[in-house]
Nucleic acid binder design. Structure first.
Length: 116
DNA sequence: ATAATGACTGAAT
DNA sequence: AATTCAGCCATTA
């Protein structure tokens, strides 16, 4: 969490920054976000960041899913159900197994997109 | 400073 | 093809 007086954006803030750029109706994987942050293996930390995310945040955390196109964090519970709901609402369809087609919904940032 | 934790991931069985 | 194993990173205790 950004401590007061911290000038450089910490990992969390950078994660949020990236996720905020994800367009509706598309999704990205944790590992993908990690790559954009410059740490390809920091997928776990990314998940941790979203876990720590305050409810009042403007970050579309629900557009971040695991590499298999499914919902993580126990894959069940109110939080997970909510994520499915929000994504379906944006047009992201899930199969009976609870997985979506990443080939179809995965978002790739364009060259004109930067995560300052 | 060491150890434990977790919305992950890819390779090995 | 399904399941298990072991790294990886940043944060917290």
């Amino acid at each position: 969490m950004a401590r007061p007086g911290d000038e450089r954006p910490n990992f969390y803030d950078r994660v949020y920054k990236v996720v905020r750029k994800v367009p509706p109706g598309t999704v990205v994987t944790y590992g993908q976000v990690a790559v954009y942050l410059g740490s390809p293996a920091a997928a776990r930390a990314v998940g941790y960041a979203l876990h720590n995310l305050p409810p009042a945040s403007d970050v579309p955390w629900w557009r971040v899913i695991n590499a298999m196109g499914g919902i993580s964090h126990k894959s069940r519970g109110a939080q997970a159900d909510r994520q499915y709901e929000l994504l379906e609402l944006e047009g992201v369809r899930f199969g009976p197994e609870g997985f979506t087609d990443l080939r179809r919904y995965r978002w790739f940032p364009g060259d004109d997109v930067d995560f300052d």
